[in-house]
Design a protein around this nucleic acid. Structure first.
Lengths: 151, 151
DNA sequence: CCCTCTTACTTGCTTTGTTAAGTAAAGCCA
DNA sequence: TGGCTTTACTTAACAAAGCAAGTAAGAGGG
């Protein structure tokens, strides 16, 4: 462990490259969200709920890349703002099901045009085919076996 | 702005896909760092300083994907831990130049083997050629023109 | 030379992230 | 059915992120 193996250049370090790439992409999106009253995290929650429909908090946290304690707080705030609803199913009263409200859907709709415009610009500058390839790879990366799985 | 353009599926949303992919990759790296005494952010600062040499805080923040207020505090802590030095250049006393110390370099060396091992595993599971393609694309994404540049 | 503007941080304050501990409902099993 | 384990959050406590405001040094113009 005291070897002197040189590490990759940071541009070629996968974690750093992913982070920097995301920062580049998020710039205009942060501007869009600044005028919307929700932050990045709440936006992700709305997006996931709109796509998946009513979801348990654990699953929602996983898909929105939030830890459960963060989601607990965020969901409470979003319920107070009327963007989502929270219900406890009768058949398993440990769970909480979150669902997007019409008001939450309206918020997404209100920004979908701007969002599409930002995305179209990236598609134009980066290349549509290449972008699809990138998304394929990112999807594959998520599906990689975790430490300990497999041999 | 009240259109009803449907957004991309979240798996195909670039910001979300980048975030999820990064979460997948970071798992074993977080384990490695847990035993090192530095967190992700400090590790990035060390990596960037080792690569670029002494740097102004603004530039360092940009390359390590940190906001300046965060870096101000992190750099102070790292200086106290002896991992970096901070100096004010005589020709412009507004600036602060951060540089990695021998102790900071030793910390990187101490984890370079484990880091290489983690990376080798990803390379094996994901495919070496494909991984290079992915890194090419991420690098290109960072280089995309910002909002307002160009027409 | 003075005033203003810009740059490069630094500080303060409010959310979020993170880890650990706590609680309540289900499931399991003799 | 009582006791133990697991699941699904919730709460608490503290570090870190993020935004806005503040400070101090350099730059530029009359």
């Amino acid at each position: 462990m005291t070897d002197e193996l040189p590490l990759r250049r940071t541009k070629r370090s996968l974690p750093i490259a992913l982070l920097r790439a995301r920062e580049s992409v998020m710039g205009p999106i942060r501007e869009m969200l600044a005028s919307s009253g929700v932050n990045e995290q709440k936006w992700r929650v709305l997006r996931v709920l709109q796509e998946r429909g009513p979801s348990e908090l654990t699953q929602l946290a996983d898909e929105a890349c939030l830890l459960l304690p963060s989601l607990t707080r965020i969901a409470k705030a979003m319920e107070e703002d009327g963007l989502i609803s929270r219900t406890t199913p009768e058949d398993d009263r440990r769970k909480t099901i979150a669902a997007i409200t019409p008001s939450g859907e309206a918020l997404i709709r209100a920004h979908s045009a701007k969002s599409a415009q930002i995305f179209a610009r990236i598609e134009r500058d980066f290349g549509a085919v290449r972008l699809e390839q990138l998304l394929d790879m990112l999807e594959a990366l998520q599906a990689l076996p975790r430490e300990g799985e497999k041999g």
